[in-house]
């Protein structure tokens, strides 16, 4: 095999694994953006939602726990997370109605800690892997060998983002969510049940987090502190413009791609800084994010 070609294949594999990681960041970033779009609050527990979703799936599907069939366990875990999101809004977040945004932000930070410790107390702090039916399978395209999990992660993420994008553009519920975020009074008096809509947004954010958790745990181990990568996803959402769903995904993919290449090119230790350095550069040169909606709002 000529040397140059091997190098290209290495690059391709770095790109694919970067995109797969980036997809998970992107899905968590989607959760940030969903909550932000609909309620103007930032949910700093979104990464921990992802981790919780992963652990619930592991608990349902892995043979050492309940051992339910994978294809039943996944929709079940997504539903459980959606219900948890809904109840969280109903019994906790809604009580903060009318309080400053910062109060909600701090509440979600505390919530993240609580989730981390509760998960650790129930399922221990050791890393665990979700056992999937397609574990260890490989996809061969010519000489390129790809992990099946990584490709699945990318495909599922793209489909989910497309669905959410269309949902917000076209569906009555999606439009109602946007209307409720722009003006609650006006939304009420065209007949939108604002409070229920906000609970549904939290449910949606819980479901998306569960999908991210399933994808993450099927390609690598999770432990209760995994949720901290929510910070990277936050950077992704900022890069994407914080109000844009495709922007969040692309922000996630950018961060996912930067990581392996930074590790390849920079000395160990420095490479970890790269995603945040990019976030800073974006904030300095394009403060509204790469995909900001502010552009077309200028009149």
């Amino acid at each position: 095999m000529p040397r140059g070609e091997g190098f290209d294949l290495d690059m391709m594999q770095l790109v694919i694994s970067g995109l797969a990681n980036g997809s998970v960041y992107g899905l968590i970033a989607l959760g940030f953006v969903l909550i932000y779009k609909a309620t103007e609050a930032v949910n700093f527990a979104q990464g921990d939602f992802m981790m919780l979703g992963a652990f619930i799936t592991i608990w349902l599907a892995n043979p050492q726990f309940l051992g339910i069939d994978f294809w039943i366990a996944v929709p079940l875990a997504i539903s459980i997370m959606a219900v948890l999101g809904y109840l969280l809004d109903l019994f906790v977040i809604r009580k903060m109605f009318g309080q400053p945004q910062i109060a909600v932000v701090i509440l979600t930070i505390a919530l993240g800690f609580i989730i981390r410790f509760v998960v650790g107390a129930i399922w221990k702090h050791e890393p665990q892997l979700l056992e999937t039916p397609f574990a260890g399978r490989e996809l061969r395209i010519g000489e390129l060998v790809l992990g099946f999990e990584e490709v699945a992660v990318i495909v599922v993420t793209l489909l989910l983002t497309l669905f959410l994008f269309l949902f917000f553009r076209k569906a009555k519920l999606g439009k109602a969510m946007q209307a409720a975020s722009q003006n609650q009074l006006a939304a009420y008096y065209v007949g939108i049940p604002v409070k229920r809509i906000q609970s549904l947004v939290w449910a949606l954010a819980g479901a998306v987090a569960a999908v991210a958790g399933v994808l993450f745990a099927s390609k690598g181990a999770v432990d209760p502190s995994t949720g901290l990568l929510g910070i990277k996803a936050f950077a992704a959402a900022v890069i994407g413009g914080f109000g844009s769903l495709p922007g969040a995904l692309i922000g996630g993919l950018i961060i996912g791609l930067i990581e392996p290449f930074a590790a390849y090119a920079l000395p160990a230790g420095y490479s970890q800084i790269a995603p945040y350095a990019v976030m800073l550069l974006v904030l300095i040169f394009r403060p509204a994010g790469i995909f900001s909606q502010m552009q077309k709002k200028k009149v």
Partner: peptide, 23 residues
């Protein structure tokens, strides 16, 4: 509830104008 009022066929405007500003 307030959001059920429009379904009766009652609509309103506001003294301080409540519109969806970013639309």
């Amino acid at each position: 509830r307030p959001d059920q009022v429009p379904s009766l066929g009652i609509a309103r405007t506001f003294q301080n104008i409540e519109l969806f500003e970013q639309s």
